[in-house]
Design a protein around this nucleic acid. Structure first.
Lengths: 138, 138
DNA sequence: TAAACTGTAAGCATTAAGATTACAGTACTC
DNA sequence: GAGTACTGTAATCTTAATGCTTACAGTTTA
């Protein structure tokens, strides 16, 4: 599991906390503790899905383009990390004569797909606003 | 996400399919498509949790020690892969003066812990027997 | 036209995942 | 009790995934 989803959530929460001005990739990167190129890559995907607006040139950067109360983590997961619940490596061999070996891949695939469905159902309940509220709790 | 959980499920389903005799690590490894040492490492954990019995020496190997209808994937996940839903890398910096940066780690931790809780709830519904039934479907 | 930004990609470094090898310990068989 | 076929476990090596750095073209503003 890589951490692009976590970075996206962090970045969006940060933008929700700065509703009135743009934040540069360098600013966000410092806050998240990573490098600007990585932030730009992730924000570029978020822009293509309409979560943020970007502006190039002087005074440019990123700004949230959604109501944080209506932006949930399932939407973010979907665009950034869909399909990452299942491991890259898979057991079994479809060519094997043993049914267990030959079908296991397919069965585990279904299990992970459904697991991801439930995972997203859970993430749907959490909005960027609720993340921000939790952060600001004393 | 590594694939030890998948390997454990595959191995246990295989054992459930061979209820009357022991399977060696080499046999299981061939079926799973990995190496015997890896199987032994995973099976050793499963033995410590009472899922399988092992026997050393000639004719030894592994045999299921649970009713496959009462052995669910949540139990397996718990013993093999607990805590792996959250990425190793974490955003933010607890020492940062910005609340978002300093608290994000803690908030994401909670989110991933609860996500794992829901994930396990889903896995509870799936038994080794049901995996085997799915495999044997035409 | 210079400065400050994004967009994107190539290449490098680090870390996690998986394979290999080795060998001690155990149980069975002759 | 010696040989064989297993598990248990650890050390080391290889490969693949992850993250970082650098670079530069494109865009906007001053």
């Amino acid at each position: 599991m890589n951490s692009e989803f976590t970075i996206a959530v962090h970045s969006l929460a940060l933008l929700a906390n700065l509703p009135d001005h743009m934040a540069s990739s360098e600013h966000i990167a410092k806050n998240v503790c990573t490098n600007p190129a990585r932030i730009r890559k992730i924000m570029s995907i978020l822009r293509k899905h309409g979560f943020v607006r970007t502006k190039e040139g002087i005074g440019g950067g990123y700004i949230l383009d959604r109501d944080p109360r209506e932006l949930n983590l399932a939407q973010i997961y979907e665009t950034i990390s869909s399909g990452t619940l299942k491991p890259h490596w898979c057991t079994g061999d479809p060519e094997d004569t043993c049914v267990v070996s030959s079908k296991m891949h397919c069965v585990m695939d279904q299990i992970f797909n459904q697991a991801e469905f439930h995972y997203k159902k859970y993430l749907e309940q959490i909005t960027i606003q609720s993340v921000l509220d939790q952060i600001k709790q004393p």
